[in-house]
């Protein structure tokens, strides 16, 4: 795992590349720790409030611990039309968590995302970097059960 110092150096200490740095910092644990946020602020010599303001703005970042797998569930209109609500209910039911929560075993976090741009195969969701389409409640449950 790269240290904050290394990641900031890799991005040339350019504060305009903060979004990329935060992505790198987040990738091993799926969330941005206090040390990561303070560390990147210190290395870039920018205020902590600035880094936190950015981290709390973009929905792909989290400053709270999240599960190993992040489910980004699309509830935009095209997915909604194709039955996303039932699928979402099934996912919540299977994992016993609500949106923006993490399973007690720390395996899954459930979030809503804006359109994933795969409306041709709606409803859709992303599990970490993998996109799944044409979901039904059963298919979604199977996918989660098979995720290891």
């Amino acid at each position: 795992m790269n240290t904050v110092k290394e990641i900031v150096a890799e991005h040339g200490h350019e504060s305009s590349r903060l979004l990329e740095m935060l992505r790198c910092l987040q990738s091993p644990t799926n969330y941005l720790s206090e040390e990561a946020i303070v560390g990147v602020a210190k290395e870039l010599n920018v205020p902590i409030s600035h880094v936190y303001g950015v981290a709390s703005f973009y929905s792909m970042y989290s400053t709270k611990p999240r599960g190993k797998y992040i489910i980004r569930f699309c509830e935009s209109a095209p997915c909604h039309i194709e039955g996303a609500a039932e699928v979402l209910e099934a996912v919540q039911d299977q994992l016993q968590i609500a949106v923006n929560e993490t399973t007690t075993d720390g395996k899954f976090s459930l979030e809503l995302t804006s359109c994933l741009g795969v409306c041709g195969v709606a409803p859709a969701m992303m599990v970490n970097s993998t996109v799944y389409g044409n979901l039904t409640p059963e298919k979604a449950k199977k996918i989660l059960a098979a995720t290891e």
Partner: peptide, 8 residues
């Protein structure tokens, strides 16, 4: 290339 982080 610069990429976003989830903000419409």
């Amino acid at each position: 290339i610069r990429s976003g982080a989830g903000a419409y």
